[in-house]
Design a protein around this nucleic acid. Sequence first.
DNA 1: GATCGAAAGCTATCGGTATTAGCGTATGAG
DNA 2: CTCATACGCTAATACCGATAGCTTTCGATC
Lengths: 190, 190
Amino acid sequence: MPRAGLTPTAVVERAEAVADRDGLEAVTLARLASEFGVRSPSLYKHVEGLDGVRRALAVRGLIEANARIQRATVGKTRDEALLALARAYWQFARDRPGLYAASLRAPTPRQNDVAAAGEALLGTVLSVVASYGVSGDDALHATRGLRAIIHGFVSLDAAGGFRLKLDLEESFRRLLSAFARDLAARGPPA
Amino acid sequence: MPRAGLTPTAVVERAEAVADRDGLEAVTLARLASEFGVRSPSLYKHVEGLDGVRRALAVRGLIEANARIQRATVGKTRDEALLALARAYWQFARDRPGLYAASLRAPTPRQNDVAAAGEALLGTVLSVVASYGVSGDDALHATRGLRAIIHGFVSLDAAGGFRLKLDLEESFRRLLSAFARDLAARGPPA
DNA sequence: GATCGAAAGCTATCGGTATTAGCGTATGAG
DNA sequence: CTCATACGCTAATACCGATAGCTTTCGATC
């Protein structure tokens, strides 16, 4: 019985591919094992069971989202940065639906790695908000609001919640611009 | 073997209780059967498998949310109605976490009952938006935005996404008032 | 009140999942 | 070349949903 050359990252990367192609529910140890031509118990030598795979997916999803957002917003401020952030996150959800879904299923970030990845993402959002010149509690309330808006819109879209023909981009733009106006009003007068 | 007196609604109501107490994942045919002192295959005489239970939960969740929102907004308009709607929905998610979660897992409302319940809820939201005097595409964009805001905020809260000490009510209020201001600006000058 | 058919709950079974225990072998370090 | 370790395996357990087909209960009808 030749070795399959499995590694933790190989398993998780395969899990990402399965999640993106066939949905997060399709990510099962049996499925992963079969894709590697291996029996499921063998996977336990590399990952901590199905929960371990899911946790790793969540972390990688958060990291990927953060990376995309940072790439998109670097050097930008205010409305330009806000729009870029929102678009980058939306695009992430569209490009990597399984990884995106996995990143949402990290309800109890007891695990340090999940918490760290989540906080990094939060920091990026906060810095965009801060570019409007708001600070302190204002900035924190605004960060919550921005997360809610983007998460709400993107997840409703991903779940097929918007069934009308009406232009989605336009809805998104309007929602963000209303938020941006409010944010600008809270910052310094100019 | 005496009859257990099962009915479709009895099964689904028990499923609601399990979902609210132990989470939606705990809603399993085996669990429901055991709660009724019955074997799992017996449930198939009353519901269409686990999928049937889930579908029924989704429908009942949407109906419950709609009922609460209608009760909360009746006789109100504009900001008063908007705030009441948002609060009622948030309260629903807090009071009935399992049923709330079930109402979100209706991604493909192919089933007529799910679609109908979803559209009824949508209609209620639309009527609140309409109270601002906006109509046509403006109203549809606004309805999408409002859904995104509320869904995003409430689901992030339900998932434990807001871990700071900062007052949640205040964050919610600010987010909604920014939206309301934009909405008022789109309506007739009144 | 007896009868009988439909409805309800049962057992048995199948296929799927995760997980653990413990075995044998391939592999690379020495 | 040896051998300890890492790796993949089989076997077994314990869940889960679902179907087939049997038995029993119950109520409508005569």
